[in-house]
Design a protein around this nucleic acid. Sequence first.
DNA 1: TGTTATACTGAATGCGTATTCAGAATGCGC
DNA 2: GCGCATTCTGAATACGCATTCAGTATAACA
Lengths: 342, 342
Amino acid sequence: MPASKTRPKSAVTAVEVARRAGVSIATVSRVLHQTVPVSDAVAERVRAAVAELGYVPQTAARNLALGKTTTLGLLLPEIGAGFFSPMLRGIESAARESGYDLLIATQHPADARRALRRPLGAHNTDGLLIFTDNVDAAELGRLHRQGFPVVLLYRSPAAGLPIPYVVVENRAGARQVVDHLIDAHGRRRIAFLRGPAGNEDAYWREQGYRESLAAHSIPFDPDLVADGEFQEQTARAAVAHWLATGRELDAIFAGDDDSAGGALIALWQAGKRVPQDVALAGFDDTLMSRYLTPPLTTVHAPTERVGQEAVRQLVRLITTGHAEPRVLLPTELVIRQSCGCP
Amino acid sequence: MPASKTRPKSAVTAVEVARRAGVSIATVSRVLHQTVPVSDAVAERVRAAVAELGYVPQTAARNLALGKTTTLGLLLPEIGAGFFSPMLRGIESAARESGYDLLIATQHPADARRALRRPLGAHNTDGLLIFTDNVDAAELGRLHRQGFPVVLLYRSPAAGLPIPYVVVENRAGARQVVDHLIDAHGRRRIAFLRGPAGNEDAYWREQGYRESLAAHSIPFDPDLVADGEFQEQTARAAVAHWLATGRELDAIFAGDDDSAGGALIALWQAGKRVPQDVALAGFDDTLMSRYLTPPLTTVHAPTERVGQEAVRQLVRLITTGHAEPRVLLPTELVIRQSCGCP
DNA sequence: TGTTATACTGAATGCGTATTCAGAATGCGC
DNA sequence: GCGCATTCTGAATACGCATTCAGTATAACA
């Protein structure tokens, strides 16, 4: 009896249920899964035994026999960053609706050994939702080659890898806010707080920004672009620097709401009025944005839906082998007061 | 070959590694787990085979053989409520450090059938972190009787159940803020926005509030207490009602930051200045609180540490069979401007 | 060189469930 | 009342890993 002392003997097994009901374990299984008709009398006896003993099939054994886990893996860069909350809710609810459990793991930047120790939860889950830039293309390629179901969130796969992904309309959203700043409020010196280099959201938001300027014949001015890194502190410093060096600007489009918050602080500290002196807009529509003073005009990203949609695609991929190659969710301009609207 | 068509044949098993390395599966296992010395030559061959084949032990089989899952279950009432973010981060990081995976589930109020279908992840995890009021005492008792490791978060077990739990110093924290409003700012008509009935945090915060009043010989006035339900909307309505009916008050202690946010909106809409006319304080120190105008004086709840500590205790319980019956984490007064401080 | 201790290794077994395959019980027609 | 089709049911097996038990080769010693 290997490991007999470490294993809790309390667990009720199908054998005991079978003995109690006077049948074989095969019949127990049949009653539980309704796969083959079982005579009423026997079924009733089995059900009674199950109830009395409080029998619950052992997940590990079930997984082994079935060759699947009914579990979805979620790989995040770090947890609890505020931004993830709605996404997590979407993922959790969609997973539950589909009957899947949710296994969460985070991948920290300098944590390569973990990937070695347990390659991304393969064999541990039926599929993987990946939302992190720290999984390199090679790793993704490996998973894909093995036919392991993967869906990417907020990120497209490296060229050539046909891995389904779910993203939001960053470019169009950015285009819309900047258009609004120009068209509705007549701003033309619009600065941009860029996101982290290599970040896809950051890239497309900048594209939208440039596109809007171009459409309004406003020349792109590199002096009006700085790195906000999607971080409050960095953004604050960048804006403070602009103001200290007398940079002329009448609006700021922040790459995300966090950096918008930082910009707001810097503007306030420099005695600039928002939106009178400088109009401000962000991106994401996080919880915080409506609590800022003035409330932040921003672009709503359907984060919760991203989570739901990703789960939906992943489940499709697992069950049917096919999924939408790319799901693009619309963003929506949310007008509050920081842009100058009443 | 049962289920041969549903099971992916791609998975590399220990048998293949063994064959390739010219050894038995026993030796493969020995090399991987370093339990028994293996000659260098053989070990090297095995390691090479593992690398070439990309072998990863099948979790389900491993769990079955070992009788444990190395996974912690987390049961939440609902996910992504902002408040959970830091807690989740604490839980995740602590779990990872201890080498455990994290399985997340939510328990929705009217979801009794789920509890029947799969009783709380027993047989699925090695232990459970429970943070919800929807698990009744009977269910907890059942788990405890089975010897299944459970730790409660932000909640104490029903009387008599010796289940370890982790909570924060609600009473002392509340006492401190109210003391501050009275001592530092001379407020004496201090209203209280109570949390949900039956919620433990809500209960102890009210106790702290009453205690402070009593210590300052201020009579408790039921007219200055209303249900904020820890919700912005409800709190806003309650405060609006107070103001509309001319209730006299010079300060509001909100049971949590969300209701403080609601109170702030109601005060602002009624033309009351904060903190000049009415001082305001909250509880929790959520991300949002420093973005309010004026920044919210509140009580910092060490939410992330609660998560970490709960995991630590749960792991102790799993590995040693014992844990601290009760962990009480300190809160800390965070003074910003909404109370009247400069 | 023979003997014993030592260091490794492989065959066999158990974990608990789902499923297959063949056999037992039941019902039907004649 | 017998044979045959039809339902049901149980024994056996596979899933993949970890472990035990019984070895076999090697080194140490006399």
